[in-house]
Design a protein around this nucleic acid. Structure first.
Lengths: 348, 348
DNA sequence: TTGTAAGCGTTATCAG
DNA sequence: CTGATAACGCTTACAA
């Protein structure tokens, strides 16, 4: 039985039943003072016609659009696409639509995205900031309009909103400590843009681990870069030419880890004999990377789920005062080595 | 200078200038009979107020919503997220929005998605079918409504629309032929659901290569399955227990390739010494998989771009008769082996 | 060249 | 309990 796509309006039902549109509307909304019999008739007719309220009209009217906007840097990134998956799952079974906007790491586009999502009357906004974004005035305006906003992953300290992030500090700390406990002493850290919250938290975790074990923090072992794979090779080469080269790498993303791996391989260096490598990653195929790559796994799906839950909670009971807090989702450290037959998983 | 998010309407401009909303509307649309001076004033005021037309109102009115709907099985899949990236890039610089729906491989959800996209008045629809979909009546209705539709990747022969796909036949043929030329004779083929167009095309390419080289097609070497990683192990085990076990694997997806790799490793089999493995894949980190995995790379981004271009072309000149055709985007066969220092790329 | 009014689908308000 | 009517932002005949 092919499901019909034909679209009927409240008017069609009204005409069919010889009653007014307002009565139909009331019957459909369930509530109010309405004759049970009329209601039954309307429901039955709606069912038969496969009536679906027009979301556009609803939005125009100003009431809930039952759509949430998701603005993020880019979809073609395993972390974000997994996060969207989590968001969509929650949204779907709570009856919301997801409209996705990509800022492409551009501040200007992000602002445009915010405008567009506002004019499309989303009921709430879920955001991960572009790497260019430092000024968050555009988001303050969202809040001023009383549109619920939840930030995830790439957040800003300048906004007093609910934030959902991975435990970046904890993950970085565990990774670094593991390297130290494996006997490494000069751990390079390849990371992304320095002004991002996640970058800072990870760097802090890295430093804290060094400090705990009495190792000196050496700024010259840190490299900030973009995601481009072409940038990683030279970075690694430069580090290895250092008078006291690193004996381990800790990278802030899967792309950096893969780039690093490639660069090391080209120099015929072996992992983990010559250097160790741990990446902050979302790549679930990391298991198969050669040579063995240990990873701090980001809870992408869960971040998306929790963020969506928080947002929808806010949307649905705007009146009550909801606690604004930063939710930290734990990471997992997965340690692999050539001698292990299967992965040894250490949960943080 | 923080860009303002405040939202003004055509009324605000009208009030500001002491003219009527229709005049403002006409001035904004540019065209028509309008006093150049009035037009200038309106434009200037719109600019000053950072006026943006309300897309909701536009859609309700029935005119172009400048949004295209994208319905696909799931985002958390590297192929699709790359495809979306291609779609979004084209859409963005041609002034369209992208509204994404995930069918989650469910026919019912796909139908709901189609309804929703229709009621959100998208100007056109870009789709990749769910694996459950065989009946396409819901899409025929879209066409009947004169809403442009372009299918990509997972297409249906039952619809007379433009389709954009990878050259699955060619890719499978090249992969199989390569295995044969490497001396393999019993090539297992792990693939996805048999009723999907891509599955059939790949199987046909595989068969054609066998035939060309005088090898027998052995149905018992073919396995159809879902994406679940847990299903792959038993499949591979069963095949290897065969009285004449395969000496090579050709898989239809990166997930199957990775699962296969894992299963083989658990049996302490070496690739390519014991068996060969080629996967149809989108995973650009396949370079780093150990043991070396040869791949047929799918042109995901390009498929998205071409599909979006075709769709928008159709949207923007609905009047002219546009050619309905199936566009095949070529794939690349990347051959890697342990003896190669760098990848040898063979373009098809 | 410009203004008025109707209408897109729905809901809220106010009479009946 | 039910039916008009107005309103959301915008476009477009139709009038002026």
């Amino acid at each position: 039985m092919p499901l019909p796509v034909e679209t009927y309006t409240i008017k069609d039902i009204a005409r069919e039943l010889g009653i007014s549109t307002s009565t139909v509307s009331r019957a459909l909304r369930g509530s109010y003072e309405i004759n049970p019999e009329t209601k039954r008739l309307v429901m039955e007719c709606a069912e038969r016609l496969n009536y679906r309220p027009n979301p556009i009209a609803l939005s125009l009217k100003g009431s809930a659009s039952r759509a949430i906007g998701v603005i993020l840097p880019q979809i073609a990134n395993y972390f974000f696409s997994q996060a969207i998956n989590g968001i969509e799952a929650i949204a779907y079974n709570r009856g919301y639509h997801v409209i996705i906007f990509q800022s492409q790491e551009s501040y200007e586009r992000e602002v445009a995205n915010v405008q567009q999502s506002m004019s499309r009357k989303v009921d709430g906004l879920l955001m991960s900031l572009s790497s260019e974004t430092s000024d968050v005035a555009h988001l303050q305006e969202v809040l001023d309009k009383n549109v619920p906003l939840v930030l995830f992953d790439r957040v800003s300290a300048d906004l007093n909103v609910t934030k959902v992030v991975a435990d970046n500090f904890g993950g970085a700390f565990a990774a670094t400590e593991h390297l130290i406990q494996s006997g490494r002493r000069r751990i390079a850290h390849l990371t992304i843009q320095p002004w991002l919250s996640i970058t800072q938290e990870r760097l802090a975790g890295y430093r804290a681990a060094l400090e705990k074990h009495g190792l000196e923090f050496d700024e010259s072992l840190i490299r900030y870069g973009t995601f481009g794979p072409d940038e990683v090779g030279p970075m690694v080469d430069e580090l290895m030419r250092h008078s006291a080269p690193p004996d381990a790498f800790f990278t802030a993303s899967d792309r950096l880890a893969v780039g690093c791996l490639q660069a090391l391989r080209q120099r015929n260096l072996h992992i983990p004999e010559d250097v160790s490598l741990i990446g902050f990653t979302n790549l679930n195929v990391a298991d198969f990377l050669a040579p063995p790559l240990s990873t701090v796994v980001q809870p992408a799906t869960e971040i998306g789920q929790v963020a969506a839950e928080r947002l929808i909670d806010q949307i649905e009971r705007k009146h009550r005062a909801l606690p604004i807090e930063t939710v930290k989702i734990p990471t997992e450290l997965i340690v692999r080595s050539s001698t292990m037959t299967s992965s040894e998983v250490v949960k943080l």
